[in-house]
Amino acid sequence: MTKRVGARRSTVALKALMAVSGLIMVGYLLLHMYGNLKVFSGQVAFDEYSHHLRTIGEPLLPESGLLWIIRVVLLAAIIAHVYSAVVLTVRDRKATRTGSGPRYKSKQNKRGFQRSYASFTLRWGGVIIFLFIIFHLLNLTTNDIAPGGASASPYERVLNTFGEWYMVLVYTIALLAVGFHLRHGVWAAGMTLGANTSVKARRNLNVLAYALSGIITIGFLIPPYAILFGWVG
């Protein structure tokens, strides 16, 4: 037995929080990806776009106003996402922890009937992604990590980074993790928000999950590889 809490704080409500925060991040990723692809328009366009992000909404908003709003929303989303993930994971551990050792002693069928790789790796994938985000911010936002040289120009930062093969490798691994995370996460968000109520809805939801995870993974990987192979700049 666990403490009785109302439905507002139930696992289902927490999952809804996780789903909504996840979908906010998916939306952000789509915008982010769109921005990244501007790298093909050259340094001026890319840096201008980058600068424009800081001035958008002026004079209604102060400089970098919208950017800060986005940052606050994203930060809130991440906190909500991680918070619900931690609370629910702890709960699940407790629900399945009986006695010592593994839950089932049998060494057969460890993957059950049908558990997919994506669902199997959702939690650890999430941790990897979280660590990657920190790395990514240090790398391209603050430029504290600057392989290939630091620069004030966002365009140059990108080019310098992906000129190095090992950085492309790091980003590839991270984006594959994102892809798997989204494959199951988008589907799960749909489930949690009540979108799967028929065979047709389930199919659509699965298609959407595959499509979003595919588009985002590939969309983000195009610039690094284009840079690595020297098709940009």
């Binding site: 037995m1 809490v5 696992t11 289902v12 629900a95 799960a188 489930m191």
Partner: peptide, 15 residues
């Protein structure tokens, strides 16, 4: 749902 949680069951991860 409240009772489900109170009993200590885990949450669904849509697997």
């Amino acid at each position: 749902v409240e009772q489900h949680d109170h009993e200590g069951f885990g949450n669904c991860t849509n697997i």
